[in-house]
Amino acid sequence: MSKDQVRGWGFVTPALLWTIAFFIVPFVVMGAMSLASLEGRTLVWDLSLANYAKLLEKKYLWRAILVSLEITLTVTVISVVLAYPLAWIIAFRVSPRWQRLALLLAILPFWTSYVVRSYAWLLVLAREGVVNETLMWIGAIAEPITLANTRFATVTGFVHFFVMLLTLTIYANLIQLSPNYRRAAMDLGANAFQTFRHVILPLTLPGIVTGAFLTFVLCIGDYVTPQILGGNTELTVPQVIMVQLGRRADFPLASALAIVLMSIVALAYLLSARWLRLDRL
């Protein structure tokens, strides 16, 4: 090894050791743990797939996987549909002088703790909250309706967060487009909708997919939002993981669920890899 290489390793080693000790090793241990099982209160390293079999047998476990997928997909689709026009308006309607400010303001509440943001939505959606009061005031409803502690509340809290994230990734993609594409399409006789459908949309697909992928990953792994805003009738995978850790201290089952969660994310990555531009963020 040359002197240059020895020095180079000297600089890289601390970060590398940290990542290996506190990320890779725990990760491997978690993988091994998912193959162990609990007998009473003692841990048995029996290298079996029993925990994974349980995911298919026990209804509350596979239900959680389905609920997580449903919520995450709903949130991702709604967020893209709401964020695209917002990014579009900021990129093409707001004058360049104010664009930076408009974008900054549009994503400022993104920088809030999940806990604080979910609590704030609980306030807004509460029985005596602002939304119910407003709806009763304008006469749309006579009695307060249940909004908090439902799947609707969970989805609303998530959508709020991810609209901001997606606005950022789609905006970043939109302003890179040369106006010549639009002009060329118009000159060739396309109307506004055709230009959007066949020219702008395909060109902004990387921004959409990158944002949607981040949304998917962050949404499916979040415990706080469904725990604070959701009802008691259904649990997501992160919630079930936390239940295993708390009441039963069933680390093997929690580990297996975590591995499943990661596999779903890996699958989403493979499906979207063609359009992903994570390095451009």
Binding site: F23, F27, M30, G221, V265
Partner: peptide, 14 residues
């Protein structure tokens, strides 16, 4: 690429 929950869970186990 891994959610915070899983990073925390791995460390907690170790």
């Amino acid at each position: 690429t891994v959610s915070y929950l899983i990073v925390g869970l791995g460390l907690l186990i170790v």
